[in-house]
Amino acid sequence: MPQDLPSPPESTKSKYWRKPLDADTVKVPHGELHIIVNRCKGCRFCVEYCPRDVLEMAEDFNVKGYHYPLVKDEVACVNCQLCEMLCPEFAIFCTQTEDEEEGGGEDEG
């Protein structure tokens, strides 16, 4: 990224620093998260690397005694599936919600 451009905003919730030219035509996909709570071993990979800051760690423990992720901002998920790919426990996955199918979330791991 060239130096003279403004830095991305502090928030990870993709506030645009300029409005994309095709913003009207691109539908942002939306994902639904599924968490298999008792498979989780509390590594926090998903919470840490979610580019939309959708997840947070629960105060509670699962049956194995680990804190597990909870969805704190369901609307923000764009089904990028990074959490699903990073999760070493196969404990979280994402499905695209029916009504919005165009476009696709891309985020480099």
């Binding site: 498979r39 071993k41 990979f45 790919m85 070493p88």
Partner: peptide
Amino acid sequence: MPHIWCPTCGLGTVVT
């Protein structure tokens, strides 16, 4: 599942 690997091990990610 659950697999035998420790919490925060990267092997599960490699399997995925």
